[in-house]
């Protein structure tokens, strides 16, 4: 048993920490893609605007999003106080949630998070200029890894642990789906591009940003291809940033909660269906459906699941029940 508010905070700490890292990884995709050679006479594709679109920033930027450059995109993704998903905001929210239920996390977790936040407060857009950007990205990844280390290394495997894991998995599903979708926005499929070097390097950048390049080549022993990367990042159950891996993680976490509480909620079945549907899919079926369409569906399904979890464990504010004894008067 734990306070619903505490469970919710734990869930969001998991999400925000992952989000900070994933936004940094998104920026890494654009950084890598924008360093690729361009073919003469072809319009430049704008990696930064694609990443912003994938990050859901179209509303904030408006039509300007097509002209976004590294400077404006990095400001938005890392620093913009108006962007609720910026790295700095994510870290601040994660730390605020932890502070609001200070002792539901171990001291190691809290101190790592508090340290992440106090360093984040010192960062400025100037730190992200030029060669500062890869350093900034590495710093976010290292801090997030440190939190995960403290989390897996010191937390008791109880409901608190499960709620953080749920948040982490939900966020990673969302982010891997969005990461893959960047490619859709960068380059609408044109036949002449398929198998061209630009296409190849873009898929490669994507794998690198997902920390999946070595895993991919080692496990697939194959060249990087659209088909291969999509299959790997969606369906490879052994790769920790794939969608399948994280849906399995959700299934395991709700299973732990069920074992812990001795009861299940309606969302348990929803998670299990999500996981088994995915396991039954082939990459051919995904491509046939359309990659973009499939990814959009995953993002929506994931969102719906997060809402169901919130309702099941009382995260959402419950309307105050009028005092029945007073109603009678």
């Amino acid at each position: 048993m734990m306070l619903s508010r505490v469970a919710e905070s734990l869930f969001w700490i998991g999400r925000y920490i992952e989000r900070a890292e994933n936004v940094a990884r998104l920026a890494d995709v654009a950084r890598r893609m924008s360093a690729l050679p361009r073919e003469v006479g072809r319009p430049l594709s704008n990696e930064w605007s694609s990443v912003l679109i994938a990050a859901g920033a179209r509303d904030v930027f408006g039509p300007e999003i097509e002209r976004a450059d590294a400077g404006s995109a990095v400001d938005h993704l890392f620093f913009d106080p108006q962007n609720p998903s910026s790295v700095i905001n994510s870290v601040t929210y994660a730390r605020e949630n932890a502070r609001a239920m200070r002792f539901a996390l171990t001291r190691d977790c809290w101190e790592t998070l508090n340290g992440f936040w106090s360093e984040a407060r010192q960062k400025t857009p100037a730190d992200a200029r030029g060669s500062g950007l890869p350093d900034l990205i590495d710093w976010v990844k290292a801090q997030s890894a440190q939190f995960r280390g403290a989390f897996y290394g010191t937390m008791v495997r109880d409901d608190a642990f499960a709620f953080v894991r749920l948040g982490m998995a939900i966020e990673r599903i969302d982010s891997t789906a969005r990461l893959l979708d960047v490619k859709y926005h960068v380059l609408l499929p044109k036949t002449e591009d398929v198998g061209s070097s630009a296409d190849h390097y873009q898929w490669l950048s994507l794998l690198q940003a997902a920390a999946a390049h070595r895993a991919y080549t080692a496990m697939r022993e194959a060249d990087v291809s659209a088909y291969g990367v999509a299959e790997f990042l969606i369906l490879e159950g052994r790769f920790p940033r794939s969608i399948q891996f994280n849906v399995n993680a959700l299934e395991a976490a709700v299973g732990d909660i069920e074992a812990y509480y001795g009861s299940q909620t309606p969302c348990h079945q929803v998670v299990r269906t999500f996981a088994s549907d995915l396991r039954a899919l082939s990459v051919d079926a995904i491509i046939a459906q359309g990659l973009h369409e499939f990814l959009t569906e995953v993002v929506e399904r994931n969102y719906d699941l997060a809402n169901r979890l919130s309702r099941s464990y009382g995260f959402l504010p419950v309307a105050d029940d009028p005092d029945p004894s007073e109603k009678a008067q």
């Binding site: 048993m1 734990m2 306070l3 508010r5 469970a7 909660i257 509480y261 464990y313 009382g314 419950v318």
Partner: peptide
């Protein structure tokens, strides 16, 4: 509720 206090938990 009914003159008793409860906390909302999971």
């Amino acid at each position: 509720e009914d003159g008793l206090v409860y906390m909302r938990t999971t």
